[in-house]
């Protein structure tokens, strides 16, 4: 009797299996969380060493454009000014987003509003292929096609913000497009019907109704594209010129945060100031990607409230 009772009171085989399954899947997710948190932690510790161990002032880091951490400047302090890289990063990001957004919105409108069936069948593979092409290939094309073209058109070396933006333009185009498509698809069909019933032309419907209703989604798409452009390393590094100088025009060689990290990290010794300064650049990149994330969340919330 006792035996039977114990058997009945014990969790069944299925319950045990249930618990085991839940625990295993929980372990997987905790693993990812631990990795992410330690990633942020380790990069933060390394990146902050410039300020706490080497006592570089934040103001110099963000506002001076003299980058030469291996040598002392006129004031006897090492030159750790990241303003040039930060400016160049923002310049290529903004320029590529400005270039890509109209094209992305046009493609998305064509695929959802103008020719939903044919457009989608034709352009979906185009978007997938553009996403699939690896960044080094974009960089390589930029190096052998875009840079020489800029050199002949505008003079100079051809390397610089313009070349970087043009390469990034193609790279972030599919990102912005596919997210814009998602947000256009969420505009309810009765908006379109109502507008057309009022006698609006197709363009008026698109411009005055659909695009406005989808605006938060389109903004999110653009911020996603900007986040990708800001963090892209190799393609930009191949065409930006890699000189840590403040960009004075669109066609002078400069360096972005990512390109500086890519080209310098292997040449510095762990624990020295030049190395710590690079980790600070990585920390800026990390913080920016978090900021982009917050921005996306914020736009999403604002958009929800308007509906």
């Amino acid at each position: 009797m006792n035996d039977v009772q114990r058997k009945l009171m014990q969790p069944s085989a299925a319950t045990k299996q249930d618990r085991r399954g839940k625990i295993i899947s929980l372990i997987c997710i905790v693993f990812i969380l631990i990795l992410t948190v330690s990633l942020i932690g380790f990069i933060a510790v390394r990146g902050l060493a410039t300020f706490f161990t080497n006592h570089v002032s934040l103001r110099e880091f963000f506002f001076s454009s003299a980058w030469n951490p291996g040598q002392l400047g006129k004031n006897g302090q090492p030159q750790v000014g990241a303003a040039a890289m930060i400016t160049a990063s923002f310049a290529v990001t903004l320029l590529s987003a400005i270039l890509a957004t109209p094209f992305a919105v046009a493609v998305a409108l064509y695929m959802t509003e103008l020719a939903p069936k044919r457009g989608a069948r034709l352009l979906q593979p185009v978007i997938e292929l553009l996403v699939g092409i690896p960044s080094v290939v974009y960089g390589f094309i930029g190096l052998i096609v875009v840079v020489p073209a800029i050199r002949t058109l505008f003079g100079g070396t051809g390397f610089g913000v313009l070349a970087g933006s043009l390469v990034l333009f193609v790279m972030i185009l599919p990102t912005i497009t596919s997210l814009t498509i998602d947000s256009l698809k969420q505009v309810p069909d009765y908006y379109r019907s109502a507008s057309l019933a009022l006698g609006a032309t197709r363009w008026q419907t698109i411009y005055k109704v659909i695009l406005r209703a989808a605006l938060p989604g389109i903004l999110t798409a653009v911020v996603f594209g900007m986040a990708r452009a800001f963090g892209e390393a190799l393609a930009v590094q191949m065409v930006i010129g890699n000189a840590a100088l403040m960009p004075t025009s669109l066609v002078t060689p400069t360096a972005t945060l990512t390109s500086q990290l890519t080209s310098q990290m292997g040449d510095t010794i762990m624990g020295t100031l030049p190395n710590n300064a690079l980790w600070s650049l990585a920390l800026v990149l990390l913080l920016m990607s978090v900021i982009f994330n917050v921005l996306i969340k914020w736009i999403g919330k604002r958009g929800e409230m308007q509906k």
Binding site: G231, E232, A233, T258, L261, T262, M270
Partner: peptide, 27 residues
Amino acid sequence: VIRTIIEVLSSLPSIVIGLFGYLILVI
């Protein structure tokens, strides 16, 4: 919170992830 952390990880530039690997695994 879990979802946000995963989103942050997915939006991190791959060069930053590579450098984390360099810091932890390689060194």
